[in-house]
């Protein structure tokens, strides 16, 4: 699904990705974890072609990423910050994204799921942060792409929407899709992910299941296991 070989990215003097190799072949939910500044978002943005790496190659479903854009048709992406043109109405934004991607969609169902009907005629600038995140989620999930990338999907959501989001992610998994998630909420990651990838200093430090991580670190608690990796490396 995604093949990354020897990826290097540097912003000025700051090395963010340092020879990262990653192969994601199987379907399922994969969490990308790591401390702040470990390169999670840079990795995701490189896959999307928004960040251009200095060195290395990325392939998404047999298509090279560099200087191409057609392959993004097969990716659903949820950005971290949901900020939209404030003069557009929710309905118009959804129509616009549909227009730009040109695929059959299930937007109605998702609007119902997140209870967005009363907001459809409101301008995006007038929405609260949580409602905007819901619009963001609708935009992401309304296409049926084999690869889904979620950058901090839980931010700003109320508990009811959080439960719905979890169900939604599980449904997509059952359809055999690959889902990449970054999140700082460890309980969410532990509950939902099949496998985790732990980034440290621009490389993959650990790859495996949550249980593998607990065994390796000898910590029965997931949050402590993560903390263990960080302290044993940075102590």
């Amino acid at each position: 699904m995604v093949t990354i070989t020897n990826l290097h990215k540097q912003f000025g003097n700051l090395k963010v990705l340092n020879g990262l190799n990653l192969q994601i072949t199987e379907a399922g939910i994969i969490a990308i974890l790591g401390p702040n500044g470990s390169g999670k978002t840079t990795l995701i943005k490189s896959i999307l072609g928004m960040v251009l790496p200095q060195q290395g190659e990325i392939k998404v479903i047999d298509s090279k990423v560099h200087k191409r854009y057609g392959y993004r048709q097969k990716i659903d992406y949820l950005p971290q910050i949901a900020n939209f043109p404030s003069n557009l109405k929710v309905k118009e934004l959804i129509e616009m994204v549909k227009d730009l991607r040109g695929q059959s969609t299930r937007d109605k169902e998702l609007i119902q799921l997140f209870k967005l009907e009363p907001y459809l005629d409101k301008k995006l600038g007038k929405l609260s942060g949580g409602s905007r995140q819901k619009v963001n989620l609708v935009l992401c999930f309304m296409f049926d792409s084999p690869l889904i990338i979620l950058d901090e999907p839980t931010s700003g959501l109320d508990p009811v929407s959080l439960i719905r989001l979890r169900e939604l992610i599980q449904q997509e998994k059952v359809k055999g899709k690959t889902i990449l998630i970054t999140s700082h909420i460890m309980s969410f990651v532990e509950e939902i992910s099949d496998r985790i990838i732990f980034l440290l200093e621009g490389k993959i430090y650990f790859k495996g299941t949550v249980n593998d991580l607990k065994t390796v670190t000898g910590e029965p608690n997931f949050e402590h296991a993560i903390a263990n990796i960080l302290t044993s490396n940075h102590a």
Partner: peptide, 16 residues
């Protein structure tokens, strides 16, 4: 002001 919107577009199958 439209930077975030640009980022949204960049993730869609549209050329820069």
């Amino acid at each position: 002001n439209s930077r975030e919107f640009t980022e949204l577009l960049l993730a869609l199958p549209v050329s820069r």
